[in-house]
Design a protein around this nucleic acid. Sequence first.
RNA 1: GGGCGAUUAGCUCAGUUGGUUCAGAGCAUAUGCCUUACAAGCAUAGGGUCGGGGGUUCGACUCCCUCAUCGCCCA
Length: 884
Amino acid sequence: MDIPSRYEPAKAEDKWYSYWMRHGFFRSVPDEREPYTIVIPPPNVTGVLHMGHMLNNTIQDVLIRRARMQGRNACWVPGTDHASIATEARVVSMLKSRGIEKKDLSREEFLEHAWEWTHKHGGIILEQLKKLGASCDWERTLFTMDAERYESVIRVFVDLYNKGLVYRGVRMVNWDPQAQTAVSDEEVYFTEEDSLLYYVKYKIVGWNDYVTVATTRPETILGDTAVCANPADERYRHLRGRKVIVPMVNREVPFIFDDYVDMEFGTGCLKITPAHDINDYEIGLRHGLQSIDIFNDDGTLNQNAELFVGADRFAARDLAEAELKKGNSLVRVLPYKNKIGRSERTHAVIEPRLSTQWFLKMKDISRPALDAVTGGDIQLYPSKFKNLYRHWMENVHDWCISRQLWWGHRIPAWYFNDGEFVVAPSEEEALEMAREKSGNRNLTAQDLRQDEDVLDTWFSSWLWPITSFDGINQPDNPDLKYYYPTNDLITAPEILFFWVARMIIAGFEYQGEKPFHNVYLTGLVRDQQRRKMSKSLGNSPEPLDLIAKFGADGVRVGMLLCSPAGNDLLYDDSLPEQGRNFANKIWNAFRLVKSWTVGADEAQPASSALAVKWMREAIGQGIAQIDSDFRRFRISEALMTVYKLFWDDFSGWYLEIVKPEYGKPVDRASYDASISFFDTLLRLIHPFMPFISEEIWQLLDERKDGESIMVSRMPEPGKFSRELISGFETVKETVTAIRSLRKERNIPSGEKIMLFARPAGTFAGEEFFPVIIRLCNLADLAKVDSRQEDAVSFMVGTTEFYVPLGGKIDIEGEIARIREDLRYHRGFLESVMKKLNNERFVQNAPSPVLDLERKKKSDAEQKIKSLEERLRGLGDQGESLVTK
RNA sequence: GGGCGAUUAGCUCAGUUGGUUCAGAGCAUAUGCCUUACAAGCAUAGGGUCGGGGGUUCGACUCCCUCAUCGCCCA
């Protein structure tokens, strides 16, 4: 058979992915089997695959493929997220590049563009996932804004409103006066900028005295409604209960005290403008202050300001400075550096502004979600996130669910008359309710005005595990009953609160049941300098290029190898390279086995029979280890177990023992065992490396169309012999020692040598002597009961081995080596004796620990005795008499 | 400012309730090998006072205190 010595992934990958699709292996419908369900964390609909997705989806695919092979009905639901902020921003900039401004479009026109964009770019990312090997049930592909999901979100909003959990409230938002929209906290960046600190005098009412306040924004003095000091500040204690006069507008405002004020900063005296600063706003709430909003949407001053109406906020600052100077209120102006928030989109300075928003009350609704995690009903991996979760849930704030955007689920509230509103699932129902509420039967749809805002993206994705099975619209449908709760959720810790916690809340609120059993939190993919991978830094490799270069299997292995849960993954090309090398290793092991011809009359060598006997146990141990790794979600360790089992044990040891001499046939028993081991190992490998395992599995034996490793059974853990495995470990040690000895003494591997073993007690690897003979090219291995002359020796356990070398021994070197050994063992014995001579240790230590120490003592004494004997034999009298 | 977490080999990480010769793995490194499965390989070897200091204990990588450094979340 002519098989290339290098595995070529490209052809195999496309071939097998379409084979799997053709046979519907990814499809899941409810049946009598136990379900295993994962819902995908929906990527942004117009996004492209990045390294984070690669990691995340590889893990999901590993879990889903393993569950499928364990005989469960595995269902992985794919889908995409409308991602209102990101998508709308992208559409806006796309339109801009065509010379179209959003503000010149109607809402309907804009949405048309947005949908067009979505249809054009939507789903690219899902196609990319197929290249990775993702075994999603593509017939179930969803979108957070498709008809069913849209309807679900609206229903939930209305329901929560009717339950009194949704309310309207005032909140400070980041206003971008240039784009004239609110932006989210994530879209604000801070820069340190040079500015000025103005010291301004406020007259005290009734006294001929002033207080001085330091501010960076004198124009907002026009909106001041208090002046505040720290209650512990002696300097202002006398002002308790007084009022002061705001300069320029001559408004009387109270002098108040609040712990928030930093006594060290400026004069220790702070002016309070609740409408234009988040901290002032909160102080205002605490003290019942009035808010005066002095800005228009575009950042110019409005009528409330009384002065400088129509001036831009920065022009107003200069005007205010002049006006204060004129009124003799300005004490001084100092240069000052402060942090300025700017809009990521327009770079305009953010103006904090009060606005009316929709909120969801979180306290009561989130209690079951808190208990589910703290009580262990839902497990987080790694568990260190549990504390974080609890802390957040215990201090949960109400959720602001409205966004000043067009792309998303439009808030189903309709306003009428002046300031009245109703919340309803449709305009018709809203109209009916409005008529009833107002008592005016003549209201028409024209009198209603729907809220302009949309809902926060997370307000749709928090329902994802439910809406994936249409559980809001059809609460008792068979899919939902079968698949919900889902099993595992794989996502990034950065959205533990935004998404995971809220899904748990929604799960209890709408299903009375958690949405998943386990949450596995992956790390962030970073580059070698620990920088987050991002498009703007240009430090993120193109995933599809990587797949082309290293193969999907190689990339998957690369992502998994160094990504223990919750740890950041420092990406480097050497990772997928290691994965590719592993694929190549598997490929070549296959080439070897496939090249063998079976000799009908060939007898099985003793060494081969022993290798088969050991390999069976080693695989048994591997399976058990992998099983336990998966149960604890140690996915990268499970992979490492498979990796070492295949590379070291199977390829490095087993095949080296069993493989026949070149051109000679192999015996039937060894051949069959090898094929069977290979088959088992491929199944263990399949979840991690679906393509190469399928490719080889198909070639390993005669297969019919429709057969596939992906629907074969995963080997199940059973009993295995630890004694046998540890016996073989001593064989490995012995073989390594002989190889090392050959290397040190320049004995070519082709030259046959003799080996004597002199066990004190039993040598654990004794039954494997034929294996040692085979691997070390020995003339023979014989047991002796006395020391051998003219031989170099080494010890494995308590057994002494001798390689006779005639007169060629370097006695000096040998003595030095043995002395070194002796020193180590004497030191070790000493430390053991220290414990055993300590009465308190003997009294307090549990008996297994004590027994162990005694065994260590006798083993050490045994070794020391043989070493001393050996030294004497070499004629080294002096040192050997020095015993401690 | 409040909270959570981390610090173990050159790098990335394991180390389960304190007790095996327990200080480990993979990668990287060094040396020698193109030995007819694989140089994308094989063989062998060298790397660490477990962040610093103190304490509890017969015994500490593991528990407690403290300091230092770093990361994340919230404000």
